[in-house]
Nucleic acid binder design. Structure first.
Length: 456
RNA sequence: GUGGCCAUAGCUCAGUUGGUUAGAGCACGAGGUUGUGAUCCUCGGGGUCGCGGGUUCGAGUCCCGUUGGCCACCCCA
């Protein structure tokens, strides 16, 4: 703020080196998890025709978008607020020649014209992974497993975060069986979604209007049917009896008929057990999400104590590709933003600090070349650095004038270099391992370089 | 979009009922001592106090507006 009156636009971020490194740390983890699970990377334009978004969401969406008309142009455009329409467009255009199922991921910037708050900005990065052309519960589970794989790769555990899973069709069928007309269900979903924002008495009274008792309201408030694997049981071989959901809280059964729910969810639960991630999952009747187009399984990932906003969310959307002009195609996927994920990692102390961070993203120097006090060493610094770089190493040298060994070693450490190469004369050097502190004896320069460039 | 709280150095903050040239610690830069990441010493850069206006002899301080941040509501694809 010193020299300029300009501020970054509301809800945007500036990325100084350590910020950019944190961003890369996250995006590289996204990429790795995607590739590990067999997804291929795609992308589309960062702005699309405005119509692409109003088709699905109506004109009301426009106030949430950054939209514009080119000076002198006619068409309306919008910065992309989500990827699903673009994904559907890409898929529809080549549906005939794509493999089934098609597994795609992308990660990039998105824009929403909302009022910024903690965890919610106007420009953010989002990771999307989708499976198109596979209607099976196995695909549902694979999507969740990919998400869990990412979380685990960053050091999060099933005690830090919970995957809340629900099934829209199952919940709808159950509600219909209790006589709640389909038209009134979205109303109930909205109430369920807002349950945490009102006193319990108010919730009980409002849910009473839908024909639920106070005891049932209590169950909705707790909201959770948890399926866990008992300690000592190998989740890969653990059998789940579809007729008897394991470890369901008995008090829940007393007041809710979960038959519809479990019929729809048990095949998925079995897949989650097979994938070894059932411990991460709670089945939660109140998770509703974008009622607009989800048709089956829906899920959200939350910090276990409920801190922060949702880390990720997704579900099955079997009608959407068709809505965008493609062939009828079952699909399931999810999105995860970088903002909340970053906050949770910071909260848990899992975001690496400077030196480690640069090392983790491959931006730390392999070797820092230090001239000793011998004047002959000075002239050697640049040729040696050039030679190390030609061999593919990340090599740096000081730009300071001091030849104080201690200060130069400190500079090497500050820059998180792995090794220091100390030039002793025009033909000799020592290699110091800056991680262990071990230093080699003074050897011929060629030997020292060979040690640094040789295979590990 | 509505409302509340906040804004002084890169960071954390101090700054008296309105009064000289706005300070500290850390961080950063240059150099010195000790041939090894430390310690120590010297020096230095950096602020039109978010921005604009008003009141006043005089505003970092009081008033209004504005921008941005945080929080709640709305929304959350």
């Amino acid at each position: 703020m010193a020299e300029s009156a300009f501020q970054a636009p509301k809800g945007t971020r500036d990325f100084y080196p350590e910020d950019a490194a944190r961003r890369r740390f996250i995006t590289e983890a996204w990429r790795s998890a995607s590739v590990r699970h067999g997804f291929e990377e795609v992308d589309g334009p960062i702005f699309e025709h405005l119509d692409l978004y109003t088709v699905k969401s109506g004109e009301g969406i426009v106030s949430e978008l950054f939209s514009f008309t080119r000076a002198g142009g006619e068409k309306d455009y919008a910065l992309r607020p989500e990827f699903t329409p673009t994904l559907a467009r890409l898929f529809a255009a080549r549906a005939g020649s794509l493999p089934k199922p098609t597994r795609w991921f992308m990660a990039g910037p998105f824009f929403r014209a909302e009022k910024p708050q903690r965890g919610r900005l106007r420009e953010f990065l989002q990771w999307n992974a989708d499976i198109l052309g596979d209607a099976s519960p196995a695909a549902d589970a694979e999507i969740i497993a990919t998400c869990v794989s990412l979380l685990a790769s960053l050091g999060l555990t099933s005690r830090d975060v919970r995957v809340k899973v629900n099934h829209r069709a199952a919940l709808g069928a159950w509600l219909s069986s209790r006589g709640l007309a389909a038209e009134r269900q979205p109303e109930l979903f909205k109430l369920l979604d807002a349950r945490g924002k009102m006193p319990p008495q108010e919730f009980a009274s409002r849910i009473g209007a839908f024909g639920f008792s106070a005891e049932q309201a209590e169950v909705f408030l707790r909201g959770i049917v948890r399926i866990t694997v008992p300690a000592g049981v190998d989740p890969r071989t653990h059998e789940v009896d579809p007729l008897r959901p394991p470890a369901v809280d008995p008090s829940v059964r007393d007041v809710l008929d979960l038959t519809y729910f479990s019929d729809a969810v048990m095949p998925l639960a079995r897949e989650l057990v097979a994938a070894g991630i059932i411990d991460w999952v709670d089945f939660d009747l109140s998770i509703v999400r974008g009622l607009a187009y989800y048709t089956g399984m829906v899920f959200e990932v939350h910090e276990a104590a409920g801190a922060e906003r949702a880390i990720a969310g997704g579900g099955r959307y079997d009608n959407l590709v068709e809505l965008f002009g493609g062939p009828s195609t079952p699909a399931v996927g999810f999105g995860m933003g970088d903002v909340v994920l970053g906050l949770v990692l910071e909260d848990r102390g899992l975001m690496p600090k400077a030196g480690d961070l640069f090392r983790r993203i491959g931006a730390a120097p392999d070797v820092f070349v230090i001239p000793g006090p011998n004047p002959a060493a000075d002239a050697l610094v640049k040729p040696v650095v050039a030679r190390l770089r030609a061999a593919g190493l990340h090599a740096r040298h000081t730009s300071k004038t001091t030849r104080n060994i201690g200060k130069l070693l400190k500079e090497a450490v500050d820059q998180s270099a792995r090794f220091a190469l100390i030039l002793e004369s025009d033909s000799t050097a020592a290699v110091k391992d800056l991680t262990s502190g071990a230093q080699s004896p003074v050897v011929p320069l060629a030997d020292a370089i060979a040690r640094l460039t040789g295979r590990e």
